[in-house]
Amino acid sequence: MPDAIQTLLLECESIFRFVQKLLKQAVARPFEWRETVRQCFEIGNRSLFLICFTAFLSGVVFTRQSRPSLSSFGAESWLPSLVSQAVIRSLGPLITGLICAGKLGSNIAAELASMKVTEQIDAMEVSGTRPFSYLVVSRVIATTLMMPLLVVFADVIALFGSYLTVHTINNTSLQLYLNEVSVVITFLDIFSSILLATFFGFAIGFVGSYAGYTAANGTSGVGKAANNAVVISMLFIFIIDLLSLQIINLFR
């Protein structure tokens, strides 16, 4: 048992050092602009299609699933407001977060772990580059910046999917749909959703980088790092979601 506690404490210490290093390197000059931009492209553009596709489907499914219970007491006209609140407050960020945790978290962790195993990180260091800033800072910044954008896309696409569903069932016009949505959605909803996504992005980038950068040597280390990254970042996403709900409700 004391061994387990020691391992845990050592892990905490190593995470703390990682955060410290991350913050230090994030402000250190020179900033790796080019690599950050490249990572933004890899993370943002390359995930866009997947996110849009999933968001669209979940918009459609969520609308169809909530319709029966609403229509059972004749409140089918509330469908747009119900769906839009659900999508913008929770569903959009959550879906984007979980998919990115799966896609980006594992990607980042596996990439960094394999770079570590094949000494690419060492090679960078002897080539006059701070690998931490080149690899980790750029990725964490990219995920943190791109996630909110992806959430905006996810929200819009999910609402569009929901609109198409409502339209086919009730023949609701786009104008009416948008009106109903804009009445129930507040600035707070949108900003909190974007803030939430920013935290999700940071968590995904951080967990992925940490798992990859501290991976054990050998090929099994790569797999383990990717696996850990996905599991832990998904866990983080739910925890952050819950915490932010508590905090946002203070303002609501």
Partner: peptide, 26 residues
């Protein structure tokens, strides 16, 4: 890549601004 990234960021920002305006007018 940069052009695509730029397009992505601008579209996202536009969508955000439009929806904010929409809600603002409502």
């Amino acid at each position: 890549q940069r052009v695509k990234l730029g397009a992505f960021v601008i579209t996202g920002a536009l969508l955000l601004v439009v929806s904010l305006l929409f809600i603002g007018t409502a």
